[in-house]
Design a protein around this nucleic acid. Sequence first.
DNA 1: GGGAATATGAAATAATAATTCCAATCCATA
DNA 2: TATGGATTGGAATTATTATTTCATATTCCC
Lengths: 288, 288
Amino acid sequence: MSLDGPTMDERVPRDFETLRATILDRRESLPKRIAQIAAYALDNPDDIAFGTAASIAASAGVQPSTLIRFAQQLGFDGFTSLQQVFRERLRERNSSYDERLQALRVKAEGGAGHRAIFDGFVAAASTSLNDISRTLDDAHLEDAISLLAKAQTIYVLAKRRSYPVASYIAYALGKLKIRNQLIESAAGLNAEMIAFATPADAVIAISFSPYAPATIEEARNISEQGVPIVAITDSSFSPLAQFARVWFEVAEADFAGFRSLSATMALAMALTVGVGEKRRDAGRKRKA
Amino acid sequence: MSLDGPTMDERVPRDFETLRATILDRRESLPKRIAQIAAYALDNPDDIAFGTAASIAASAGVQPSTLIRFAQQLGFDGFTSLQQVFRERLRERNSSYDERLQALRVKAEGGAGHRAIFDGFVAAASTSLNDISRTLDDAHLEDAISLLAKAQTIYVLAKRRSYPVASYIAYALGKLKIRNQLIESAAGLNAEMIAFATPADAVIAISFSPYAPATIEEARNISEQGVPIVAITDSSFSPLAQFARVWFEVAEADFAGFRSLSATMALAMALTVGVGEKRRDAGRKRKA
DNA sequence: GGGAATATGAAATAATAATTCCAATCCATA
DNA sequence: TATGGATTGGAATTATTATTTCATATTCCC
C-alpha cells in the first residue's frame, strides 16, 4: 500500500503523446489484463474517448474494474480523467487540418516572397476540393453521367479561364475512345461546328463569372437545337444554369485574383471516367 | 401534442451536415432559448460532443431541459442521441488530414457507383497538393521566377496531358499583360514559332512520363538556340531535366489511369503570378 | 510445494447525468 | 387588456455510469 500524499512522484500524462509513450514504456511490466486494455486503448483511441467504462471493457474483453485499475496505474485517479486525455486528443486533431490550411493562408497573405504565393494557390486548391467534396450531389452526378453516356458525340464548350478544363476533358475522352468535339475559337468556325449537333448528342459546358459571352451564346444556340447540356458553373444565377439539363455548382476559392481549377478538374474527370465506365458496362450487357 | 407513432414524418438527421442544414433552415422559426442553444451548438460543436447536458446548458446560458427540448424538436428522442451525431462527426473528422485522405481513398476503391470515382479524383488531387507542398524547393522557385521575369517573351510548351496547364499559364500571363506564346500543334508551325525565340526569351516546358516526343524535340531545339528553359516534370530521369536551366519535380497521384493536375497547376500559377509581381516591383524601382 | 503478494472477476454501491414534470412566464390574438 | 397556447425555469425523478469492495484466482519467491 502506498500512502504518499497529494504530490506524488510520478507525473500524470496530460497529453496523448506522453500517455502513449508512457504506456509503451511500461508495456513489458504490466499484468496480463492491464496490458490487454493498454493495447486496446492504443489501437482504438476513439472508442476510449466516446465509450463508457462498461462498453469499453466489454470490447476489450476485460472487466470495468480492470479499466479503472489501468487508469490508476498510470497515475490518473479514475477512468474519467484518463478519458479526458483521449477526448482532448480528438479535439485537437480535429482542427489540425483546417488550422494548417488557415496557417498556410495567413502565411500566403502576410508573408512576402514567392513561396507565399505558392502556398496561397495550394491553400485555394485544397479549400476548393474540400468544399466540393462536401457539397457535390450524388444524384446530379449520376444524372449527368447517364445523359452523357447516351450521347453520340460529346461537345465540350468552355472559354478563357475554363478552357484548360475543357481541353483536359477532351484529352481524357479521347483516351477513353469516346467521340468528342472541343469547341474552340481558333478557326472561328464555332457556329458551324455547333450546327452539326443533334439531340442525340450532348454538351459539357463550363463557365464561371464573369461568364464569357461567347460561351453563353453558344450554349443558348445549342440548347435551342435540342441538345442536352451538362453545365459546370458557379451559382444558380449563372446564365448557363437555365440552359442546362443538369448543372453543378462549384465554388472555387481564389488567390491573387486567380481562381483555383482543382475542384472543377476533379468533377470533370469524374464525369469523363464515369461515362467511360457506364459505356463499358452497357457494352458488356449488350454482348451477354 | 403530437402522438404520431414510432415512424414519424420528419427524418432525424443522421450526420452532422444534414443536421447543420436542418438547424440553419429552421433558425427563423425557433423560440428564443432554443435558437440560443442552436447557435451555440453550431458554434461549439466540440463542446456538444464532449460536454454533459448540464455543462453545455450552462455554457450556452440555458436550462438543461431546454437543451433536451432542442434535441426533441429536431426529431431526436433526447440529448443523448443528438450528441451521437456530434460525436460521430469528430470520429470521422478526427482523422488527421492523412487519415481522412485514406478514408476517401478506401471509399473510392471499395465503393461502387460514380461517387467513388469522384472521391478518387479528389483524393488524388489532395495527395498531390500535399506532396508538392512538402517537397517544393523555395530556391528553385526563386530562380525560376527570376529567370522568367527577365524574359522578353515567355514561350509555353506542353502537349497532351500537360496541355491544359499550359493553356492556363497562357491565359494567366495574358491577363497579367506578360508577353507569351503558347506553342500548340494545331497549325503545324511549331518549328517556325520556335525559331523566333532568342536567349533573351524563356520557356516554360511541361511534360510527364510518357513524355510526348514532340515536346522533348522542341525543348531540345529551343535549348540549342540558347533559350533558357524552366521545366516541370516528374523525375530526374526525365529528358526535359537535361535541357532545363531550372526544373521542378512534381509527383502527381493518379486515379483510374488519369493523373491529377492540381499540384502542377498550383506551381504553374505560382510561377505566373510570381513573375507578374517581380516585374511590377522592377518597374516601380526603375521609375523611382 | 507452501505462502505471501499480486491480479482478477463479479456484484454492490455511490456518483453523476439525463429526463420528466409542473408551475411560472411570455407572447400573440381577440 | 384578458385569454389561450406556447415557452421557459427549476426541482424531482429516473437512468446510467463510475467506482469500490471483497471473494477468488494466479503468480512468484523461498
